[in-house]
Design a protein around this nucleic acid. Structure first.
Length: 344
DNA sequence: AACGACTCCAACCGCAATTTC
DNA sequence: TGAAATTGCGGTTGGAGTCGT
């Protein structure tokens, strides 16, 4: 979904606004142009992904350092997987990790090669809206960051769950998992391919002289201490791959996913995130869940693998009818068993 | 064809954490 | 050591595309 360059200015933005820091240079906002991307890439090529304020202070771009960093992180990084939807596996990873970590999008993104925290955040937000619509319940917004206490916990209520750290030695590499539309294990979306103005080759070429391996790019991208656990993973997404997730492990055991939480209400107001987690799992179960587990909605056991669900006759068909038509595509072709992680 | 609801996602903001001076 | 600058993160907004009626 490429958008035309130089799109609408947002939120009172526009070229006339002056720098909050008191500078005389107008700060440009809104969508980036190819020229701006080029300048930014050149900066990264020379200096690496840092010193963002340098760009504006030297008059290279009328953009704030924050804006430059964001553009790089979300769109120009060469290892990005842009322009394609989350795969079923990626969805499951997000669900699992959101239940584990709460709304720690940056952390979750480190488990999804080629995805940014913004991607994950957007994905989750869209998903929440969809689920809320399905259930006819409004999403209760958190307090805005402006009004919430500075000391208030940011993460969801699930933050209190123990963060079980995955052992990388047990897990396959994400980009080794064959994905839809590919028989080779290579994701159909090549890295950075959907950047509107510069294709992946251009970006890679522009960045080539920079020493990515020694650049600390991983940490610059919000890699967390977990990144130290990363195992070697041969990939076209060269630079720095995040720690990986056990796709072959049922999330219920890892997370202690119960059948029905105490106080479960069939018409929840999304008061606790756990409620959403259960709903979320329900939605994805037919796609990826390999282990039998109890469905709170139906009180019956669902066994994945044969793509056969034993639902009560009176089951709420409307629930499935309203889901995206491609949601259960993978039922036609059950996920192939994962090969063990490469030992190198 | 027109309209509205919905989805996607780029990019903004404020705040906190970290780094630099 | 503390202030300032920079970086990182999570929440939010709104434009544009898609889809259904």
């Amino acid at each position: 979904m490429a958008r035309p360059p130089g799109g609408a200015r947002r939120r009172g933005g526009g070229s006339g606004r002056r720098d909050a820091a008191g500078g005389c240079e107008a700060v440009r906002k809104g969508h980036w142009t190819a020229e701006e991307d080029g300048v930014l890439l050149e900066h990264v090529r020379v200096h690496g992904p840092r010193d963002w304020s340098f760009i504006r202070s030297k008059g290279l771009l009328p953009r704030t350092g924050k804006s430059c960093r964001l553009r790089w992180v979300n769109k120009l990084r060469p290892d990005l997987k842009t322009g394609c939807k989350f795969s079923a596996e990626e969805e499951r990873v997000v669900l699992e990790l959101q239940a584990q970590f709460g709304n720690k999008w940056a952390r979750i993104a480190t488990y999804l090669p080629g995805r940014t925290d913004n991607d994950v955040k957007n994905f989750w937000s869209t998903r929440q809206k969809r689920l809320a619509r399905l259930l006819g319940t409004p999403i209760r917004r958190r307090q805005s960051s402006r009004s919430r206490s500075a000391k208030a916990p940011v993460a969801s209520s699930l933050k209190s769950r123990p963060a079980t750290v995955v052992k990388p030695s047990q897990v396959p590499c994400l980009d080794q998992v064959p994905l839809e539309g590919s028989s080779t294990g290579v994701h159909p979306c090549s890295a950075g391919a959907a950047t509107p103005f510069m294709d992946a080759h251009s970006i890679s070429a522009a960045l080539a002289p920079y020493d990515w391996a020694g650049s600390g790019l991983a940490s610059s991208d919000g890699a967390l201490p977990l990144a130290s656990d990363i195992h070697a993973c041969s990939s076209s997404n060269a630079a720095a791959l995040p720690p990986l997730l056990p796709f072959d492990q049922p999330p219920c055991t890892e997370l202690g996913f119960p059948g029905l939480p105490a106080g479960w209400n069939m018409a929840p107001g999304f008061d606790n995130v756990g409620t959403m987690d259960h709903l979320a799992y329900q939605e994805l179960l037919p796609v990826t869940q390999p282990a039998p587990m109890m469905l709170p909605f139906f009180g019956t056991e669902y066994l994945h693998g044969g793509a056969k669900a034993e639902l009560p006759d009176a089951g709420p068909d409307y629930f499935f009818d309203d889901l995206p038509p491609d949601m259960f595509d993978s039922l036609d072709q059950p996920p192939r068993p994962l090969s063990p992680p490469a030992t190198s």
